[in-house]
Amino acid sequence: MFAKIYQPNPSAMTSGRAKTHHWLLEFETKGSTIIDPLTGYNRSVDPRSQVELKFETKEEAIAYAKNNNIPHRVMDTHSTSRIPRSYADNFSYDRKLPWTH
C-alpha cells in the first residue's frame, strides 16, 4: 500500500493560505468503499485510509516513510501566482475594464 506525501492546496472557495504550510503523509485506499445503507455515507474497511500524518517539511515526511519501510510517492506542489489587489482598487478611476453593473 502506497502512501502519498504532498502539501495541501488552499481551497478554491477561499483566498487564504492557512493550513497549507505543512506536508501530509496519507495512505491510499486499497479496496473500494461501501455505501452504508442506513446513513448513505461511504465507508471503507481499510483503517489506514483514515490516517493522516502532518510534518513541517518534506524531508521529515520522506525520512519517516523510509524509517518505517512505507512505500511512498512524493507529489510536488504547483505554486499559484496571485495578483495583489486591494479593495480600493475596485473603485479607482483608472480601471482597465469599466464597471459592469
Rank of each mutant, 00 (worst) to 15 (best):
F2N: 13
F2S: 11
A3M: 02
A3W: 00
I5T: 01
Q7M: 09
P8M: 09
P8D: 07
N9T: 08
P10I: 13
P10A: 14
S11K: 10
A12H: 03
M13E: 05
M13D: 05
T14D: 13
S15F: 11
G16V: 10
R17I: 15
R17K: 14
R17L: 15
A18P: 11
A18D: 15
A18L: 15
K19Y: 10
H21A: 14
H21Q: 11
H22Q: 10
H22D: 09
W23K: 02
W23T: 02
L24Y: 02
L24D: 02
L25Y: 00
E26T: 05
E26M: 05
F27N: 00
F27W: 05
F27H: 02
E28W: 09
E28V: 13
G31K: 07
G31A: 08
S32N: 15
S32M: 11
S32V: 08
S32W: 08
I34M: 04
I34N: 02
I35A: 01
I35W: 00
P37V: 00
L38C: 02
G40M: 00
Y41D: 03
N42K: 05
R43V: 03
P47Y: 02
P47E: 03
R48K: 07
S49R: 00
S49D: 03
Q50D: 06
Q50H: 06
V51W: 03
E52W: 00
E52C: 08
E52H: 03
L53F: 05
L53D: 02
K54N: 05
K54C: 03
K54Q: 05
K54L: 03
F55K: 07
F55C: 07
E56D: 08
E56S: 08
K58A: 04
E60N: 03
E60I: 02
E60F: 00
E60S: 05
A63E: 10
Y64S: 02
Y64P: 01
K66H: 04
K66P: 01
N67H: 07
N67S: 10
N68P: 04
N69Q: 14
N69K: 14
N69Y: 09
I70E: 06
I70Q: 07
P71L: 13
H72P: 05
R73W: 13
V74I: 03
M75F: 09
M75D: 06
M75I: 13
M75A: 10
M75P: 01
D76A: 08
T77N: 06
T77L: 05
S79A: 12
S79C: 11
T80R: 14
S81I: 15
S81W: 12
S81K: 15
I83D: 15
I83M: 15
R85G: 12
S86C: 14
S86V: 13
S86P: 14
D89W: 11
N90E: 09
N90D: 09
F91V: 07
Y93F: 09
Y93V: 09
Y93T: 09
D94M: 12
D94K: 15
L97V: 06
L97H: 11
L97F: 08
P98D: 07
P98N: 06
T100L: 12
H101K: 12
